[in-house]
Design a protein around this nucleic acid. Sequence first.
DNA 1: AATCCCATACCGAGTACTCGGTATTTTTTA
DNA 2: TAAAAAATACCGAGTACTCGGTATGGGATT
Lengths: 210, 210
Amino acid sequence: MVADDHTLFVDGLCGLLALQPDFDIIGKASNGKEVLHFLNSRLPEVLIMDLNMPILDGQITAEKIVGSFPSIKILVLSMYNAPSLSTRLKSIGIKGYLPKDTDADLLFSVIREISSGNYYFREKEKYIPGLNRFAETDAFLKKYNLTHREIEILKLISENLSSKQIASKLFISLFTVDTHRKNMIQKLKLSGKTDLIKFAIQNNLWQKQF
Amino acid sequence: MVADDHTLFVDGLCGLLALQPDFDIIGKASNGKEVLHFLNSRLPEVLIMDLNMPILDGQITAEKIVGSFPSIKILVLSMYNAPSLSTRLKSIGIKGYLPKDTDADLLFSVIREISSGNYYFREKEKYIPGLNRFAETDAFLKKYNLTHREIEILKLISENLSSKQIASKLFISLFTVDTHRKNMIQKLKLSGKTDLIKFAIQNNLWQKQF
DNA sequence: AATCCCATACCGAGTACTCGGTATTTTTTA
DNA sequence: TAAAAAATACCGAGTACTCGGTATGGGATT
């Protein structure tokens, strides 16, 4: 069974899974409520789901499933590539986690693993921040007319460091930090720190650590 | 051709498209750079892509494509269901836009539409904020021990209204707004406004308006 | 009727942020 | 080498936010 609010993703994934002779897709859902409703009539061996879903959140759904239908093995597919998610997912009772940029063959073998009773969490693969991020390329800097220093400071702002803390961390004056903030706000035509935070999040300069 | 950094999505979507007798998938890519590299050897009639991609952003990629390969029709698939995106995408030269929770049949017909030279932008469908959002259900409130009033104020905070502005909007005292802020911060174990903004974004209490 | 929860309101004192502007030095680019 | 860009630094004055605490009244629940 596959649950995700992105219909195209669900349909596409089901198509891929259906090509595997040992897989049988018994259901699809686009929110947590639909999942639970479906489970009242039929139980899959493996449930592949996203944690971000409307109407009933994936995490709460998973908790309910683990409590009521312990035979179901849950595999989470997430847009986040954060191995630190693993601890939290394990504590819920989820059997496996993969990011959505995983290739299909690995997905198939992981499904077989957890179907056999194993766990699949990639803890060995350390999260490497931003090496390939657009927001750190010259094209991005040029697009927004930002400097490397500005991006550096923006990242620290988005990590909730005060200007004073940033100044201390970078061995510069508080005035300098404030000037950089001001320059960014003007260049990006934003209004204050809230907009800066949003800009950082939307451009993947900040990613949640669980 | 399909471009998206979520490999499973690309593979699944290509599988769906391949079932249509009039579609021929000539390529896949997981970032903007790969797209441009591919176009040096072969041109698709329609390019289906996501705007959020690493290494080279989808928007810049699209702008380059429209400039260098005007015969290619670009259809954007986005996780955002925001019709207000349409104006911006049109100005870039993109021929169509659909959210990822679209069903496959509509996608197929839209591909055929823009392949024929038409545009597809759903402007009639007004964005309806939050009706089905998990973050506005009782389960969510219970999960985080938040009240309706707190969520209401959190939304306004995430829209960059100051406490003073919120007080004025809701006909309450500035002190009351501050108290709600304080209560939320304590309940959610956060540190200040930055964390509140992040919480709001991650729980879809705020969504970007273009 | 008593209790709890929520919304409202306030205090005091402090820090953080904003935004107009100025300036100098260092680094990069042409 | 000269010019431009980036980094650094500062001023003044004001608003916004934070966080410890206090309190009351109304509505819902037990």
